[in-house]
């Protein structure tokens, strides 16, 4: 799994700098994710006991139905939610660190919407082109939006951080309207399949999603490990980073591209899920103050726990009704967003 692999490679690299509390926090989060995983596998319209789940996972299902339910429905869905959560959280952490903006989030500044628009356009206009290439389209759309925001916000010197967010909100509204227009125009059945995907639901996730998600996430890990160095320097501001020998502009562009790619992979699989990328880095930081490398690991774990937990709540709370995970993350995320807003220091935004 994505998180576990990152943890191991981090350990080799940063073995000396990892504080004990950080490692304990990481282990605690890992246990939390596993706990959510266990409950997710157990609960549903066909309830299973922990022992039965264990037997099924070990290849000795008590009944054939249990094997189908766990392996075909619950397990891929769980893995998808964990991976998507980690990807979105990391994307948010990267954006926040690079733009020095505590409120940056792929969904708030329009990156997720750009990815959605590209995917919906493909589904509606060329349904036969949809499929394994979907992450690529999402990446293209998200990248265009990110470039647009950067271009508009960075035009004038000073105060760029604040303009970045406001520009993003404006562009997000514009792109959502374009997506809605496409949905009106498209053939109804194609529009419906796009509509289901747009509400940020993990409902339909199967092994196909898990496969593409995990392959792409694995590809992102070396890039993330590389990213820690320049990010650590950029956190002190552009001048300090230049002094530390980082080429600021190229580093920034590469890091934002990386953040966009992470968000696009997640959006391509389950549609836009808001507020995870915004909140996970803050929660991780509140949990324990660590160096940047371990902070990223913790952020990924928090994100994984958030989305898998949101998906579990969404389908268990009002069963048999399925609430898309995107709704749950928004309902939980907005109040936390407001708290972050209230505690933010005036200077960091204005």
């Amino acid at each position: 799994m994505n998180d576990a692999l990152i943890l191991r490679s981090r350990n080799e690299r940063l073995a000396l700098t990892i504080p004990v509390r950080g490692v304990i926090a990481a282990c605690g989060l890992l246990i939390l994710v596993l706990l959510i995983a266990m409950i997710s596998l157990m609960s549903g319209s066909y309830p299973l006991s922990p022992a039965e789940v264990w037997q099924t996972l070990m290849g000795r299902p008590p009944e054939p139905t249990a094997a189908t339910v766990v392996w075909q429905f619950r397990f891929p869905r769980l893995l998808t939610s964990v991976l998507v959560g980690a990807l979105l959280a990391l994307s948010g952490a990267l954006l926040q660190n690079v733009t020095l903006n505590p409120l940056a989030d792929p969904a708030l500044v329009g990156v997720s919407q750009g990815a959605s628009l590209a995917v919906v356009a493909i589904i509606v206009a060329f349904p036969q082109a949809d499929g394994p290439l979907r992450p690529l389209y999402a990446f293209g759309g998200a990248l265009v939006v990110a470039a647009l925001i950067q271009w508009i916000a960075m035009k004038r010197a000073g105060g760029a951080t604040m303009r970045f967010i406001l520009t993003g909100i404006g562009i997000a509204a514009f792109i959502s309207a374009m997506t809605s227009a496409l949905l009106t125009y498209g053939q109804v059945n194609q529009a419906m399949s796009a509509l289901g995907w747009l509400s940020g639901s993990i409902h339909a996730a199967g092994w196909g999603e898990v496969r593409s998600l995990s392959v792409l996430s694995l590809l992102m890990i070396p890039a993330l490990i590389w990213a820690v160095g320049p990010m650590r320097a950029l956190r002190f501001g552009a001048d300090m980073a230049t002094g530390l020998g980082v080429a600021v502009r190229p580093a920034r562009i590469v890091l934002i591209t990386l953040a966009v790619a992470l968000a696009a992979i997640a959006v391509a699989a389950v549609g836009p899920l808001g507020f995870v990328g915004l909140i996970a880095p803050h929660l991780a930081r509140r949990l324990v103050q660590t160096g940047l490398g371990l902070h990223l690991v913790l952020t990924g774990l928090v994100g994984a726990a958030m989305v898998s937990g949101a998906d579990l709540i969404g389908r268990a709370m009002f069963a048999p009704l399925q609430i898309p995970a995107g709704i749950v993350t928004a309902l939980v995320g907005v109040p936390i967003f407001v708290v972050i807003l209230l505690r933010s220091q005036a200077r960091s935004q204005l």
């Binding site: 406001l166 404006g170 562009i171 509204a173 514009f174 959502s176 309207a177 227009a181």
Partner: peptide
């Protein structure tokens, strides 16, 4: 509402700038 957003959102971005 979609059309008002398509026209208004770029205007908003322009105002911000």
């Amino acid at each position: 509402g979609i059309v008002t957003a398509l026209l208004g959102a770029p205007f908003f971005v322009w105002l911000v700038r």
